[in-house]
Design a protein around this nucleic acid. Sequence first.
DNA 1: CAGTATCCATTTCGATACTG
DNA 2: CAGTATCGAAATGGATACTG
Lengths: 122, 122
Amino acid sequence: MQNAHGQVFLADCPTRLAVEIIAEKWAVIVLFALSLEPRRPGDLAGLIGGISGKVLTQTLRRLQAYGLVERQAYAEAPPRVEYRLTELGATLIKPITALTDWARENGEAIVDFQENHRPARP
Amino acid sequence: MQNAHGQVFLADCPTRLAVEIIAEKWAVIVLFALSLEPRRPGDLAGLIGGISGKVLTQTLRRLQAYGLVERQAYAEAPPRVEYRLTELGATLIKPITALTDWARENGEAIVDFQENHRPARP
DNA sequence: CAGTATCCATTTCGATACTG
DNA sequence: CAGTATCGAAATGGATACTG
């Protein structure tokens, strides 16, 4: 892909799609939480922590729209619902794991940097 | 890490830091654009396309604050500035590449899914 | 329990004009 | 050219109450 000056876009379309998918506060975390096994919304919320029911539903709906997550409802009372990764969604776990591994290895270095480069000192 | 019920947080702290870093519209794209060589802001904007000067500066400032990007100014007229990845920033390229590779391989499948699952049909 | 409907605070982004 | 300052639009997230 090229821009008006004939240069290659480093940020081509697929990359932007990937960013669009993961650049949400909870998307990566939810996908990660679903990577081991199907889970119910309540379990997801408890497992993740700090996410409201509304936002969890929103996130799941969007991941569904991308075809990354499937919803399965059981006809029971009280209602029971399970979410699981689709085959396509499962392919995202590898790159996500690469990212979380990176975070585990380098997270401390970033926090250290931030603490040693505070905005201003009195 | 555990929550109040003794369950393991799948989304532990480092993961959230990683999300915080990349969950911005342009952060991943800018890092990717800087992965090959140092670049000037104008070049970055042209290469990326669709990003305003203000937002580009914002993004670079935040990446600087994380210690992922370095700014080098030359005392010239007109002013010349270059941004480059730090050593720490360079370590992020591998997981980002995993993500962009995934996007290239699976982007089409997602677009297809979206087109075959439109909201409603008349 | 799962999900929706409101309402609201905050963040993020974009366009423009302007300075050194 | 690089960067800042504003202003406004839009997206995003959070808290709460409510329905089946």
